[in-house]
Amino acid sequence: MKTLHPKSGLFESRAIGEMALASRIILYTLLLGWSAFVLFPIYWLIITSFKNAATVNQGPYFLPWIDFQPSMHAWYELFVSDYEDTLRAYINSIIISLSATALSVLIGSMAAYALSRVHYAPNLITILFFVFLVALTWVSISAFDVDWRVALAVGVALFFFLARGVGRLHQIHLHNGDILFWIISQRILAPIVVVVPIYMMFQSVRLLDTHMALILTYCVVNMPIVVWLMFDFFNTIPRDLEESAQLDGATMFGTFREIVLPLSRAGLAATTLLVMILSWNEYLFALFLSTTKAQTMPILVAAMNAGERGILWWTMSVAIIIMILPVVLLAVILQKYISKGLLVGAVKG
């Protein structure tokens, strides 16, 4: 306390931007308390994975080697005797989330780039005709048993007739903002709203329980996030650079690859991380669209509940640990980009 400035007291700060002692104590208590609340469940998860039936059931033991003797029993069970199921689900999860993330980030950032650079003015009337006729064609095929060739031909003919005729006369133009809003607003759809038709679609093309089904679904579900974050990010890249590249003879794709993508590394990394986490953790779609062959980690872990002996907490803990490990590793690798990429875009939006 000797170092305190004469004028400063317990509740009085001594310089601009610096806090009084009392508020600092409160602050650190709060922060440390919250850290404990965050970390303790994870600590418990880790020590539980080194317990066995006895050390779990006899009541809480907190400190390995002091309270109880850690055992590799659960790890052994999952990695050696039971490894087939785990490995398959693990590989499924990796394939699905990596592919879905890559696809989603690629397609989404292309769309975001186009939206931030090209001016669109689609005619709303034409779009409405299109949607209406697609719905009409589909209903007439599925509900009224019209031959699909006839329905399709009539639909296409009607579309061109209406679009060329009426659509030319009445024009309500949409703008980039509308398209962007439309894409982002897809995120509001709860998976449960769309999953039943998606289930039926994949069933009819016999893609249920395949990687493809989950990859495509995850890709679309996460696309709004990619478009939203990357749109903001692309807007921060000066246009001069691309125009200059264009004059220097680069194609638009060349510009995208040579100039835009290298400059948006931070945004891409953050977006990738986020989409990766979301795909890796996804539960409901996987529950509907996969059974055994394409089963992902969350489904496998959730199903471990169903044993006859109740939940085997020690095995469960191991499964959860290996399930969250890749995401944590990825986050550590991409950590330096998170604050740069994700936040810049998000906070601006």
Binding site: P238, D240, L241, E243, S244, A245, L247, E258, I259
Partner: peptide, 9 residues
């Protein structure tokens, strides 16, 4: 073209 911002990559 030379831009006001120079547009250097």
């Amino acid at each position: 073209m030379v831009f006001q911002s120079y547009a250097l990559y």
